[in-house]
């Protein structure tokens, strides 16, 4: 690992002043950043440690449940308010990483973990995300884990977070602060698609610090489910994952939220499939129809062709669990 400067500015304001400089990165849990630094994928000149900032609280505010950027993944996953109001978020967090990593990783860091694939990590291979203009090793290469939605000819990597899939389904908002003041970014707009600039994973501007996320109240707590399909039963990235949340009136679907992980450069919200569910009766057939709508426009790259079958099957199964059909 290359040498770097370390600093722990005392206040939030001092952090915001410090992060505006090029070559500077924030470190919180470090579970992704330290790994990337060890492999030489990234080499910041200076790390700003923010672990001491008072951004760990989980509380109910005017706009819903507020979760501080430094709340640990393990703490959020077992928090009473989270379990009571948004069990989907807890399920997604528990499906992610390992217990040790969840004890280190923060909410802000989880959001800001790199969209990535094995070619991004391998510094001997081309990767437009790591080294713009060098090409994409995954297109025409080993692409079993890769995107089926929203990719470009520059990058087909996926965002590996489970937490973010739940947060996009739950209409969360990311609250950020910079010298200009605070800004609220709808979760669905926070991460970006690769397009011509796969080196950029999200729309956080230089000098902005994530303060936390806010999840508006909803009626999904009774009927939500997170289903993650992977190569081994635990501690692996998703091949495909689905966050499903339903509001039921008897057997009728009043409201629905659906999002997928492991399929795109960002957590992938399935708005058209949600529309196909609203007003319908809970049944395997209803879910199958929505699942087929969900994968319209999907594009595969050889190694991940199987996702065209796995993705809709996972959506149907997640909806069955959420609705109580199984």
């Amino acid at each position: 690992m290359k040498q770097f400067q370390y600093s722990r500015p005392a206040t939030q304001q001092a952090v915001i002043d410090a992060i505006n400089k090029p070559g500077t990165k924030i470190i919180a849990g470090g579970t992704n950043l330290v790994d990337l630094m060890k492999r030489g994928v990234t080499a910041p000149d200076k790390l700003i440690d923010i672990n001491h900032l008072p951004l760990k609280n989980i509380s109910i505010g005017k706009g819903g449940l507020q979760i501080g950027a430094l709340a640990l993944n393990s703490v959020v996953s077992e928090d009473k308010l989270v379990l009571q109001n948004h069990p989907l978020l807890s399920m997604a967090l528990k499906a992610g990483a390992s217990p040790q990593l969840r004890n280190m990783a923060t909410v802000g860091g989880n959001i800001l973990q790199r969209t990535r694939c094995a070619y991004f990590y391998d510094t001997t291979m081309p990767c437009n995300k790591r080294e713009p203009g060098s090409g994409c090793g995954a297109i025409g290469g080993y692409n079993r884990m890769h995107a089926i939605f929203g990719a470009s000819d520059k990058c087909i990597a996926v965002h590996p977070s489970d937490m973010c899939v739940a947060l996009v389904a739950l209409d969360a908002t990311v609250i950020v602060q910079s010298k200009k003041g605070t800004r609220r970014i709808p979760f669905a707009d926070f991460h970006r698609l690769p397009g011509e600039h796969p080196d950029l994973d999200n729309n956080l501007a230089a000098g902005e610090l994530i303060l936390g996320v806010e999840i508006p109240d909803n009626n999904f707590a009774k009927n939500s489910y997170y289903l993650k399909i992977r190569d081994r039963q635990s501690y692996a990235f998703a091949l495909v994952s689905v966050a499903a949340a339903l509001e039921l009136d008897g057997n009728t679907i009043k409201n629905a939220r659906l999002a997928m992980g492991g399929v795109a450069h960002k957590p992938w919200r399935l708005v058209e499939a949600e529309k196909a569910l609203v007003g319908k009766t809970v049944s395997a057939e209803t879910f199958n129809i929505a699942a087929q709508i969900a994968i319209q426009g999907a594009k595969t790259y050889g190694g991940n062709d199987f996702k065209l079958k796995l993705a809709p099957a996972t959506i149907t199964e997640a909806l069955k669990h959420a609705s109580g059909l199984v």
């Binding site: 470190i27 440690d49 672990n51």
Partner: peptide, 11 residues
């Protein structure tokens, strides 16, 4: 419990 390999000593 944490992974000490990804934990910087200074932190």
């Amino acid at each position: 419990r944490v992974n000490s390999c990804l934990t910087l000593g200074v932190i």
